[in-house]
Nucleic acid binder design. Structure first.
Length: 126
DNA sequence: CGTCTGACTTAGT
DNA sequence: TACTAAGCCAGAC
């Protein structure tokens, strides 16, 4: 079972994940691996999942915009989580294929590296 | 301080 | 296209 309390900025990784995910535009998505790479942890995809699990439940982090590299929803933190995630994404305009997959070629967010750098620096300063 | 687990990914079969 | 194994990170025990 994943940890429940880890929302303080003890880990730079968590703070960066939250900062970056907050910057994802509505209607766009990012994969766990992509998030990890953008924050400078090439192979920290799994840690990203943990960070999102531990994300503050106040809605300040749009965790629904993070899916796996295959375009599928991996969220299994609770039975209804994947359903909620899909509903939120569809509400933002993200279309799901018949097999429940999202077309990453269309919805994957491709941020400006400079913008990302600024976001991460701000997160570290926080 | 060693082990195990998981909202992952990639390479290999 | 589908399944498996191994690698990696942070946190719980």
């Amino acid at each position: 079972m994943p940890p429940i309390e880890a929302q303080d900025g003890r880990s730079r990784l968590n703070a960066r994940v939250y900062a970056l995910v907050r910057a994802i535009p509505p209607g766009k998505v990012l994969t766990y691996g992509t998030v990890a790479r953008l924050i400078g942890v090439e192979r920290g995809a799994r840690a990203v999942g943990w960070a999102l699990y531990a994300a503050p439940p106040d809605g300040s982090v749009p965790w629904q915009r993070v899916i796996n590299a295959h375009g599928y929803i991996s969220n299994n933190s609770s039975p209804e989580a994947p359903i909620v995630q899909r509903e939120r994404l569809e509400a933002e305009g993200v279309a799901f294929a018949a097999d429940g997959r999202v077309d990453l070629d269309v919805y994957l967010w491709r941020p400006d590296p400079i913008e990302v750098h600024a976001i991460l620096e701000a997160a570290d300063t926080l």
